[in-house]
Design a protein around this nucleic acid. Structure first.
Lengths: 169, 169
DNA sequence: TGTTATCATTTAGCGACGCTAAACATGTAT
DNA sequence: ATACATGTTTAGCGTCGCTAAATGATAACA
C-alpha cells in the first residue's frame, strides 16, 4: 500500500492485511455476541450442514481440541450450538448449530458484509473478481484444499496433527 | 465449510481465510518470540524508518493506546524497541526499533515468508499473480481509502496514517 | 478375562490480545 | 488560577491459543 511496501513479499503483506482485516471485522461480530473464533467455528457447523465431531471441528479450524471445547461450551450456553453424545461410541460428541445459531451466524454475516460493502463497492468488477479468485486460492492453500475431514495438507509444515492432544504421560 | 462455500460471500470467506492464515503464521512468529501483534507493530517502526509516538502507532495499528503501551513495554523489555520522552512536550513518548528489533523483524519475516511461500510455491504462476493483485486490492480497501499515493509520498510505512476510525473514550 | 494401549473430550492453568474506565502528567486556554 | 484537553499508563475484564494432564470409553492382546 505504501512505498516501502514494494519491498515486502506477498506473505508479509498478506499477514498484515489479515491482521487488519480481523481487527476491523471484529467489532461487527462482537457487537452481536459472536467473536471471530466463534463465528468461524459456527460457520463450519452451519455451512457444513451436518453434525461434526469436536475433534473434526478442531481439525477444520486448525486449533487444538481444548480450544474448541471452550468455544463450544460458550456457544452452547448461548444456545447457538448443541452437543450430543454418539450412541455407539461413548467418546465422541456430535456438534450441530441450533436454528438460533444459524440465524445469528447469518445475521453476523450480513453485518460483516455491510461493513466491507462500502469499500468493496468502490472496486471495479474485475477487482472484485480477482478478490474472489484469490480467496478461493487462499482457502485451498490454507486448508490443504479439502473438505472437512480429509487430510490436512501437510505441505511444508507439520499440519496440525489434529484431533487431540494425545501425548500422554 | 468447504462444501457449501459457493454460498458464502467474499467478505465471509475472507474472514475465515484471514483467521486461518493468522493461526498458521502465528506459529512461525511465536517460535521467535514475536507474536502477530508485535510483529505488526514492530514493522511499522522498522519500515517507517523513524520514531513515532505511541498514539500514532495505536492509530496506525488501529488498536487502543493501552494495547500499544503493553505491546511496547514487552518489546522494550526484550530490547526490540526503545522509548524516549519528547524534550519539549512531556506527555509524548517517541518509539523506535532497536537494531536488534529490526533484525528480529526481518528474521521473522524470512521465516514467515518461507512457511507461506512453501505453499504458494505449489500454485500456478497465474494464481500467484491473482493473489498478489488481491493483496494490493485488500490493502487499499483495508486502509479505509487512505490512498497510497494520496498521502505524502515520502512518508511511508505500513499502516500509517490510518483511517481515523475508532478511538477511545 | 484382565491388562494395557489408544482415542475423544474435558479440566486446569499460562501468556497474550483487545477493550473500557479511570488515573496521571503535562500542556493550553480562559 | 481554574478549567479543559491531550498523551500515556494503570487496573481489570473477557477471549483466544496453547500444553499437560485427567476422565471415560473402546480396542488389542496376553
Amino acid at each position: 500500500m505504501q512505498l516501502s511496501d514494494v519491498n515486502r513479499s506477498i506473505a508479509d503483506r498478506l499477514h498484515s492485511a489479515a491482521i487488519k482485516l480481523l481487527r476491523r471485522l471484529r467489532r461487527e461480530d462482537e457487537a452481536m455476541g459472536l467473536t471471530a473464533a466463534r463465528a468461524s467455528a459456527l460457520s463450519v457447523l452451519v455451512f457444513g450442514g451436518r453434525p461434526i465431531t469436536l475433534g473434526a471441528l478442531a481439525q477444520a479450524e486448525q486449533v487444538s481440541a481444548p480450544t474448541v471445547t471452550r468455544l463450544i461450551v460458550g456457544m452452547e450456553r448461548d444456545g447457538l450450538v448443541r452437543r450430543e453424545p454418539d450412541a455407539k461410541d461413548g467418546r465422541v460428541v456430535w456438534l450441530h448449530a441450533t436454528p438460533k445459531g444459524a440465524k445469528l451466524l447469518h445475521a453476523g454475516r450480513r453485518r460483516r458484509v455491510a461493513a466491507l460493502e462500502a469499500d468493496l463497492a468502490s472496486l471495479a468488477p474485475a477487482e472484485r473478481h480477482t478478490l474472489a479468485d484469490a480467496v478461493s486460492i487462499l482457502e485451498r492453500v490454507l486448508q490443504g484444499g479439502d473438505a472437512i475431514g480429509s487430510k490436512t495438507a501437510g505441505k511444508g509444515s507439520k499440519g496440525t496433527t489434529s484431533t487431540g492432544t494425545r501425548r500422554t504421560a
